[in-house]
Amino acid sequence: MNDKSKLKVYFYCFPPTLNGYGDYASAYHYYQHGTVCLGEGLQALGIEFYANVNFWLPSPEEPFLFRYDPNVSPDDCDIVIINEAWWERQGQFAKSLCDIQHLLRKNRPHQTILIDLSDDSPRKNFLDPNLARFDHYFKSHLSKSTPIFPNTHPFPFGLSERIIKELALVPPFSQRHHNLLVNSRVFLNGDHSLRNYVQKHFLPKINSIIPLESKVITDARDRGAYHTLQWAQASGRHNPGYYELLLSTTTCSSFGGYFISPFPRHPWTILGRACRKTITKLGWKTHRLVQWDSWRFWEALAAGCVPIHLDFDKYGFILPVMPENWKHYIGIDLDNIDDSINRIAQNLDRLPEISAAGRVWALENYAPIAIAKRFLKTVGITQEIT
């Protein structure tokens, strides 16, 4: 399919009546961020798309981004997209609402694509042979040290219009507080082994160079109808107070992930999971990580707040467009923490340029239009799209 004017896309969105909008506990796992980013990009490009349900309100006054049309079925479209919410719920809600096997049948008239931004777990991550039946499998958290199917492509969290809107007005860097923001949504001292290691070995040392800021922001439900809606739709991840804090701070601790053993090759087997739990319990570090992508990394970039994470190249993280260490972000080498901290101490004057370059890089490569263009090119829509 190469004619943009005739291209039609069909999304399976997890129904709002089932993911519990307004109820943080039940909505938590079903924020369909990848679907929203791609839909926003396709809309901006003028590409026609449909959905199984009405889904995602940009604001209380606007119509749904994804709309159901009873006259359009998946087989009327060139591309059919399922997201991780459907894949997770196979055998429960999903089977009664969407016959995934039918969408994967031979000689189907459309490409069937899975977009999976979920955390790593045994069934979803390359142990299920059904994943190879998709024409394309777009996945977050990819790295060079973990196995993938040939149809797999990196699809990191990136930026939605909701996030970009909240972080549109960036103050001069000189007006920010010289702090390192450390207030992860998933708290430290839990089972996030990378954050635990950083808390013990990195944060106490960097504190003398960049003072730590751990202010906790309450949720958005007291900030009006728009923010209450976005808080619910984003499963509690939307918080204007947190975005304001990013805009007022120079740097942000953006670490996320779990250390895994050098063996077995598949970290999601029973043995692999047992090794991961042992590594976490004993506080060890390795050079292999899963679940490394971080909401704070992307939000900090868009806010012009310099994110501090691991060195993406050293640890083999895979993105479709890679950031450069010390140009777009600051990447730490856990084998040489003191050297990493000394480099930060000696280059504090570079933070403003990294702030500006990182924000430009993120908006150029990971805003919805860029995400949609890259997606279309990957799935074979090759004509130029302006």
Rank of each mutant, 00 (worst) to 15 (best):
residue 217 I to C: 11
residue 219 D to H: 13
residue 219 D to F: 05
residue 219 D to R: 00
residue 222 D to F: 03
residue 223 R to D: 14
residue 224 G to P: 13
residue 224 G to W: 12
residue 224 G to L: 11
residue 225 A to N: 12
residue 226 Y to S: 07
residue 227 H to M: 09
residue 227 H to T: 11
residue 228 T to V: 06
residue 229 L to W: 10
residue 229 L to R: 03
residue 229 L to M: 15
residue 230 Q to R: 13
residue 231 W to Y: 15
residue 231 W to C: 10
residue 231 W to E: 10
residue 232 A to G: 09
residue 233 Q to T: 05
residue 233 Q to A: 11
residue 234 A to R: 02
residue 237 R to K: 15
residue 238 H to T: 09
residue 239 N to V: 13
residue 239 N to L: 12
residue 242 Y to Q: 09
residue 242 Y to L: 12
residue 245 L to D: 09
residue 245 L to A: 08
residue 247 L to F: 03
residue 248 S to I: 03
residue 249 T to V: 14
residue 250 T to C: 04
residue 250 T to L: 01
residue 250 T to H: 01
residue 252 C to F: 03
residue 252 C to N: 07
residue 253 S to M: 09
residue 253 S to K: 06
residue 253 S to E: 08
residue 254 S to D: 04
residue 255 F to G: 01
residue 256 G to H: 03
residue 256 G to L: 04
residue 258 Y to S: 14
residue 259 F to G: 07
residue 261 S to Y: 05
residue 264 P to L: 11
residue 265 R to C: 09
residue 266 H to K: 08
residue 266 H to M: 15
residue 267 P to S: 12
residue 268 W to R: 10
residue 268 W to D: 06
residue 269 T to Y: 09
residue 272 G to F: 07
residue 273 R to D: 12
residue 276 R to L: 03
residue 277 K to M: 00
residue 277 K to W: 10
residue 277 K to P: 00
residue 279 I to T: 06
residue 279 I to G: 03
residue 279 I to D: 01
residue 279 I to N: 08
residue 280 T to C: 13
residue 281 K to W: 04
residue 282 L to C: 10
residue 283 G to C: 06
residue 284 W to G: 12
residue 285 K to V: 02
residue 285 K to C: 06
residue 286 T to W: 01
residue 288 R to D: 04
residue 289 L to V: 06
residue 290 V to C: 10
residue 291 Q to F: 04
residue 293 D to L: 07
residue 293 D to R: 11
residue 294 S to A: 12
residue 295 W to P: 02
residue 296 R to D: 14
residue 296 R to E: 08
residue 297 F to Q: 03
residue 297 F to E: 13
residue 299 E to Q: 11
residue 299 E to P: 08
residue 299 E to D: 14
residue 301 L to R: 02
residue 301 L to C: 12
residue 303 A to H: 05
residue 303 A to T: 09
residue 304 G to H: 09
residue 304 G to P: 08
residue 306 V to P: 05
residue 308 I to P: 00
residue 308 I to K: 08
residue 309 H to Q: 15
residue 310 L to P: 00
residue 311 D to Q: 05
residue 311 D to E: 10
residue 311 D to A: 02
residue 312 F to C: 06
residue 315 Y to H: 02
residue 316 G to F: 13
residue 316 G to H: 05
residue 318 I to N: 06
residue 318 I to T: 08
residue 318 I to F: 06
residue 318 I to A: 01
residue 321 V to H: 09
residue 322 M to T: 14
residue 323 P to E: 03
residue 324 E to M: 04
residue 325 N to F: 05
residue 325 N to H: 05
residue 326 W to I: 04
residue 327 K to R: 15
residue 328 H to G: 08
residue 331 G to W: 00
residue 332 I to F: 00
residue 333 D to K: 00
residue 334 L to W: 00
residue 335 D to R: 06
residue 338 D to A: 01
residue 338 D to C: 01
residue 339 D to K: 15
residue 341 I to E: 07
residue 341 I to L: 15
residue 341 I to T: 12
residue 342 N to A: 10
residue 345 A to L: 06
residue 345 A to N: 04
residue 347 N to E: 15
residue 348 L to C: 13
residue 349 D to A: 11
residue 350 R to F: 02
residue 351 L to W: 07
residue 352 P to N: 14
